[in-house]
Each structure stands twice: as C-alpha cells, then as structure tokens.
C-alpha cells in the first residue's frame, strides 16, 4: 500500500462531507420533530381513493382542507384500508397513512393560497387521482369561509395548483384544465337507519332536493349500490338502467362497504359531469336523494366519481 496517502486524503474529505450532512440533518430534523403544544389538530383519513379531514371543532371535509395561515397545525394521519401517503409537496410535508397506526406531522402554513394534496404511496386502481386541495386562508375568524366554498363549484384553475377530482386530467381546452371538486352538492346525505326522517343538507345550498320529503323517498324509485360494487366487474348499480318520470325523487342507498357517488356524466371527465345531479360521496350505509324535477327528459349516463368504472343510465320521461 505504498500509494495510500492520496486515498486517505480522499476518504477523509468524503467522510467530512458526510459528517457535515448528517449533523445538519440531525439539527433540522430535531427542530421539526415535536409539534408545538398550541397546535390545532386535524385528523386526516386516507381511504381508497379520497382524503377526508376532521377538524377539532367537528367539521368534516372531503378532498378539501381549509386551514388558517400562521397557526401550527398537527395532522394525525390514519388510513381505513391500505397504505397511503399524505403529501403536500409545496410545504415538503409527507407522512404515510398506515392502517392501524396514527402518524403525526405538523407545519405552520405561512403563505395563503391553494395547494395540492396528493397520495404518494401506491394504493390501487385510482391512486393517481387521489388528490385533494389545501386552502390556506387568512387568519381572520371568518366562519363563513368554509361553507361558501362548499357550493357546487366549477372553477378554472391556473398556475401550479390545478386539481382535478377523480378521473379528470386531460389537457383542458383552455390549457389549464377544469377543476371540479367532490363536495356535498344538491343532495342530502343521511344514515340509512334514519332514512324515513331524512333531513336535508345542512349547508343549505341544496338546489333541487330542498323539498324532498320522507313520503317522496318512500314511494319514489330507488337505486341501490350493491355490496361488492367497488370491485370492477361486479354489478355497479341496481338497476343499472333506471327509468323515472320527471319529478320523481330517487332514493339512492349505498349497500357496499366502500364510499360511492351517483354523478351524472359517462366519465368524470365529461364537461357537464356532476352538474345535473350528484349525490357527492355517500359513506357505506348512507342514503341520498336525487330530485329529477330539474333534470330534462332523456338518457343521462351516470357514474361514481370514486370508482369511475361504475356506470349506469338514468332515463327521465
């Protein structure tokens, strides 16, 4: 080993760089490890294939998260089925959602705006569409901000925060894509065991089913989502072609163990998808109603935004 001096110098230099990298990482990571005690807690639930968020005050949001600027937030991340990963790339936030575990990550969002939330761990058929939106809002105690955002919205996105709800994603004609949000819209949601006393949507923005009564739902046509519908190839809707008379109120029941929707349009990418009728996300055993009074006569294909392979047709006479 006569010529070892240059090699030792080289190895020494490499080791010095590595020690520096390790020490800096330790410092930074150590300062990020523990959330400040005054953090607001948000529970993040990952599920095939959407995110739901539960705030400390009980508010629940699906695929949208509204938070205030400048406040430390602590996210408790859980999963209902397989491993997901909760990621907000603009803030370098990443934490896996592992079933059976509660992982936490915290951050102070210091810039207002609209950001992308995505799933970073492969989770199955619609992994690429498991996206949500983060709204960082000014820290004024504005309670109406949340409810005004939950109106049925079709808005143009631009810049780096375009989000397309499940199934979207073609290059839009405008070049920036159309943003559609899965949000409670013109329908009610109520637990199945309480269907006779179904109350209308709480956010008061229902456009068509505001007058749906329990008698209407009991006598009108029904559409059910059978168990196993979330698996491609199984029957998606029963019946998959439903014929109703204009004005009927359809009662939709989710008998499956996965969340579903009944949303007009053959695919989530259709231009008018979700504009004629949309149950929004129905959790297992939930029911919803579709009022056909505002739906014009004709054939209307519908699908499930969570599982776009689930399709059916509604014929209004």
């Amino acid at each position: 080993m006569g010529h070892s001096t240059p090699e030792w110098v080289f190895i020494g230099a490499v080791t010095a760089i590595l020690i520096w990298v390790g020490a800096e990482s330790w410092n930074v990571e150590h300062s990020l490890e523990y959330a400040p005690p005054n953090s607001e807690t948000v529970r993040v639930v990952g599920q095939q294939w959407f995110w739901s968020f539960q705030h400390a005050d009980g508010t629940q949001e699906i695929n949208e998260l509204h938070i205030k600027e400048g406040i430390p937030y602590r996210f408790e991340i859980v999963s209902n089925d397989v491993v997901h990963s909760f990621s907000i790339p603009d803030f370098a936030i990443l934490m896996d959602a592992v079933p059976g575990r509660v992982n936490t990550v915290w951050n102070v969002f210091d810039e207002q705006g609209e950001y992308l939330i995505q799933c970073r761990e492969y989770c199955g058929m619609l992994h690429q569409d498991m996206r949500a939106r983060l709204f960082v809002e000014p820290n004024t105690d504005n309670a109406t901000a949340v409810s005004s955002e939950s109106e049925p919205t079709i808005s143009q996105g631009s810049g780096t925060a375009i989000i397309i709800a499940p199934g979207g994603g073609e290059v839009g004609s405008t070049g920036s894509g159309t943003m559609r949000v899965v949000e409670p819209r013109n329908l009610t949601q109520a637990p199945a065991n309480d269907s006779t006393a179904a109350t209308n949507a709480t956010d008061g923005n229902t456009t068509s089913s505001g007058n749906a009564s329990s008698t209407a739902s009991a006598s009108g046509p029904t559409l059910s989502i059978p168990a196993g519908a979330a698996t491609p190839g199984n029957p998606a809707y029963a019946p998959d072609t439903l014929t109703v008379t204009k004005g009927d109120v359809i009662t939709v029941t989710n008998d499956d163990t996965a969340p579903h929707t009944v949303t007009n349009g053959a695919t989530p990418g259709d231009a008018d998808a979700g504009q004629l009728f949309d149950t929004s996300i129905m959790m297992p055993a939930a029911t919803a109603q579709i009022d056909t009074a505002t739906v014009e006569a004709g054939d209307h294909p519908f699908h499930c935004t969570v599982h776009p392979f689930m399709t059916g047709t509604l014929t209004v006479q």
Partner: peptide
C-alpha cells in the same frame, strides 16, 4: 422536486410537468 408522485398513470396538466 416539482412534486410528481411516482407510479401514477396520469399527472396534472401543468406545462412544466408536461
């Protein structure tokens, strides 16, 4: 670094990503 997740068939139609 632009935040594109791996294992996705589809990505957001942002000019830089395209």
């Amino acid at each position: 670094l632009y935040g594109l997740p791996r294992r996705v068939v589809d990505y957001l139609p942002i000019p830089e990503l395209i």
